[in-house]
Measured scan of single mutants.
Amino acid sequence: EDPKKEILLAMLMVDKEKKGYVMASDLRSKLTSLGEKLTHKEVDDLFREADIEPNGKVKYDEFIHKITL
């Protein structure tokens, strides 16, 4: 499956209130437990690539855009 789609799906599952962003810690939890599970190192690399703080907010569109360039 398309990794971009899988990450967006994980974000939507976490963002039940439809705020347009999720906490990095919640996204990490989903990405390491769903679908093609990522390792913590892979998530760290994704966050670093997208300039996301480990305890920060992750906005869908910015995150998807940064990791798919």
Rank of each mutant, 00 (worst) to 15 (best):
1 E>F: 04
1 E>Y: 03
1 E>V: 11
1 E>D: 03
1 E>Q: 15
2 D>K: 02
2 D>F: 14
2 D>M: 08
2 D>G: 08
3 P>A: 01
3 P>W: 15
3 P>M: 14
3 P>F: 14
3 P>K: 15
3 P>Q: 10
4 K>L: 13
4 K>Y: 13
4 K>S: 12
4 K>N: 11
5 K>D: 04
5 K>P: 05
5 K>F: 12
5 K>E: 10
5 K>R: 12
5 K>Y: 12
5 K>V: 07
6 E>C: 00
6 E>V: 02
6 E>A: 13
6 E>Q: 13
6 E>I: 04
6 E>H: 08
6 E>K: 11
6 E>G: 05
7 I>E: 15
7 I>K: 15
7 I>A: 15
7 I>V: 12
8 L>W: 05
8 L>F: 05
8 L>T: 05
8 L>G: 06
9 L>R: 15
9 L>H: 08
9 L>G: 14
9 L>F: 04
9 L>K: 13
9 L>T: 14
9 L>W: 05
9 L>Y: 10
9 L>N: 14
10 A>N: 14
10 A>Y: 05
10 A>R: 13
11 M>W: 02
11 M>F: 08
11 M>Y: 05
12 L>H: 13
12 L>F: 05
12 L>Y: 07
12 L>E: 15
12 L>I: 03
13 M>A: 15
13 M>R: 14
13 M>L: 09
14 V>N: 14
14 V>A: 15
15 D>V: 12
15 D>H: 06
16 K>V: 10
16 K>G: 03
16 K>W: 09
16 K>E: 09
16 K>A: 15
16 K>Y: 03
16 K>Q: 09
16 K>T: 06
17 E>W: 07
17 E>S: 09
17 E>C: 06
17 E>Q: 10
17 E>G: 12
17 E>F: 04
18 K>N: 11
18 K>M: 05
18 K>S: 10
18 K>E: 13
19 K>Y: 07
19 K>E: 13
19 K>M: 05
19 K>H: 09
19 K>Q: 13
19 K>P: 03
19 K>D: 15
20 G>P: 08
20 G>A: 07
21 Y>W: 13
21 Y>T: 11
22 V>N: 00
22 V>A: 05
22 V>P: 01
22 V>E: 04
22 V>T: 05
22 V>L: 06
22 V>Q: 03
22 V>D: 04
23 M>Y: 11
23 M>I: 03
23 M>T: 13
23 M>G: 10
24 A>D: 00
24 A>K: 03
24 A>T: 08
24 A>F: 07
24 A>G: 06
25 S>M: 01
25 S>V: 00
25 S>R: 10
25 S>W: 00
25 S>E: 08
26 D>L: 01
26 D>H: 07
26 D>E: 14
26 D>M: 01
27 L>I: 07
27 L>T: 00
27 L>D: 05
27 L>V: 04
27 L>R: 01
27 L>G: 01
27 L>C: 00
28 R>E: 02
28 R>P: 00
28 R>F: 01
28 R>L: 01
29 S>H: 13
29 S>F: 03
29 S>R: 14
29 S>I: 09
29 S>M: 10
31 L>S: 05
32 T>K: 07
32 T>V: 12
32 T>C: 06
33 S>V: 04
33 S>H: 09
33 S>E: 10
33 S>Y: 00
33 S>W: 02
34 L>I: 04
34 L>D: 12
34 L>F: 04
34 L>N: 11
34 L>M: 15
34 L>R: 08
34 L>P: 07
34 L>K: 05
35 G>M: 05
35 G>Y: 07
35 G>K: 10
35 G>H: 09
35 G>V: 10
36 E>V: 14
37 K>Q: 08
37 K>Y: 14
37 K>G: 14
37 K>F: 14
38 L>K: 03
38 L>Y: 06
38 L>T: 07
38 L>Q: 03
38 L>W: 14
39 T>W: 02
39 T>R: 01
39 T>C: 02
39 T>G: 12
39 T>Q: 04
39 T>S: 12
39 T>A: 04
40 H>P: 13
40 H>F: 05
41 K>A: 07
41 K>T: 09
41 K>V: 12
41 K>W: 07
42 E>S: 04
42 E>K: 06
42 E>T: 01
42 E>A: 06
42 E>L: 02
42 E>V: 04
42 E>Y: 08
43 V>P: 01
43 V>H: 00
44 D>G: 02
44 D>I: 00
44 D>N: 03
45 D>T: 06
45 D>G: 05
46 L>N: 03
46 L>C: 02
46 L>H: 00
46 L>A: 08
47 F>N: 05
47 F>M: 15
47 F>D: 00
47 F>Q: 04
48 R>K: 07
48 R>I: 06
48 R>V: 07
48 R>Y: 02
49 E>S: 05
50 A>R: 05
51 D>E: 10
51 D>G: 15
51 D>L: 02
51 D>N: 11
52 I>W: 03
52 I>P: 01
52 I>A: 04
52 I>H: 02
52 I>K: 03
53 E>R: 09
53 E>S: 11
53 E>H: 10
53 E>C: 11
54 P>K: 08
54 P>Y: 07
54 P>V: 06
54 P>G: 09
55 N>K: 04
55 N>M: 06
55 N>Q: 08
55 N>W: 05
55 N>D: 14
55 N>A: 07
55 N>Y: 06
55 N>G: 07
55 N>V: 02
56 G>D: 13
56 G>P: 00
56 G>N: 03
56 G>S: 12
56 G>F: 00
56 G>I: 02
56 G>M: 09
57 K>L: 14
57 K>C: 11
57 K>V: 13
57 K>E: 12
57 K>R: 12
57 K>M: 15
57 K>G: 02
58 V>G: 01
58 V>C: 13
59 K>N: 01
59 K>S: 10
59 K>H: 05
59 K>D: 13
59 K>Q: 06
59 K>W: 08
59 K>L: 10
59 K>F: 09
60 Y>D: 01
60 Y>S: 03
60 Y>H: 02
60 Y>I: 15
60 Y>L: 13
60 Y>A: 05
60 Y>K: 02
60 Y>R: 02
60 Y>N: 05
61 D>N: 04
61 D>T: 09
61 D>E: 14
61 D>K: 09
62 E>G: 00
62 E>V: 00
62 E>Y: 06
62 E>H: 00
62 E>S: 01
63 F>Y: 09
63 F>I: 05
63 F>M: 06
63 F>H: 04
63 F>S: 03
63 F>C: 04
63 F>Q: 02
64 I>N: 06
64 I>M: 09
64 I>R: 06
65 H>G: 11
65 H>P: 05
66 K>E: 05
67 I>K: 12
67 I>F: 15
67 I>H: 08
67 I>P: 13
68 T>C: 13
68 T>G: 14
68 T>I: 09
68 T>V: 09
69 L>C: 15
69 L>R: 15
69 L>E: 10
69 L>K: 13
